[in-house]
Amino acid sequence: MSQIENQEHSSEYAPVPIPHSEVRRSDVSPKQAKYQQRLISLLFGLSMLCAVIFVVAYVQIPIDETVSIPFLGTWSKMNTILGLSFGLGSFFIGAGVIQWAKQLMSHREMVQDRHPLRSPDDAREDAIAQFQQGAQESTFATQPILRRSLIGAMALFPIPLVMLLRDLGPLPGDKLFNTMWRPGMRVVMDVTSAPIRPSDIPIGGIVSAMPDGLPEVQEHDGNLNERAKSVVLLVRLNPDDIVSQQNPEGEASWDYEGVLCFSKICPHVGCPIALYEQRTHHLLCPCHQSTFDLADSGRVVFGPAARDLPQLPITVDKDGYIIARNGFAEPVGPSFWERA
């Protein structure tokens, strides 16, 4: 077992062992070889044990049982034991095989010649000659009309492949320019759909809101497209703190007694933007940290966003609930090519 009797086979293709002086202990000591043999078979045995543990755990452990690991938390018992038994079972096989190769297989460095990758000159010449023969027989060069018309046909051939992609989706139309906000539409609370009175929002307060009827639109469309562009934030500032708003000159300001309504969709790449710092009136986007000053027309004060956060003009209806005075004056969300 300890000494591997090498009957050296040599041929044109067999690698040549490099003479070396380093001898492994397992090569000269039968005791060491025996030890390695035991160690490696132990590793394989452990792997088998792991497989058994895996099966038992899979059958026996309830899927919702947890196990408390000191300092590291409470984990799913099944996940932990399945992972460890399967993982270690695999690891032991690998460790055993590698140890076998290192300790007991003949471990001699060998040398082999590389051969140039380039073909010999005569092979190249022959290949070229054969190609030319083929080219000549194809009449590709002597039939210009056929050649050109074939190229033309090949150029048009992919058109159906592209055309077939057309119905992947509708044309953009003006969808990116509009939201469902209309004059007189109530601004209601997100999640609960309750209407809001200005007095409900204290100074420093914030409300995640949406147009009244959004859930019905979602239901009807079967998607979340409208939610992805029409959600808004209501904040209330001390009217004295408001520096400017987005209303055109001459028009009444777009707030209602210090309550301001802004789009919740970041004009950078569209993340919902809602990290509101009530003391600084800054709104921060958690994705790329664009920061907008809500007291100053939603102006960009930091970060990669290029445009101010669109403001929605609001007022109250006869019942005292907040309504949109108009839709957004500009497209909400990320910039796009067609946007002016």
Binding site: G83, L84, S90, G94
Partner: peptide, 11 residues
């Protein structure tokens, strides 16, 4: 088997 084993154990 070592790579696979380490990934599974970590998982």
């Amino acid at each position: 088997f070592v790579v696979f084993g380490v990934i599974v154990a970590i998982a």
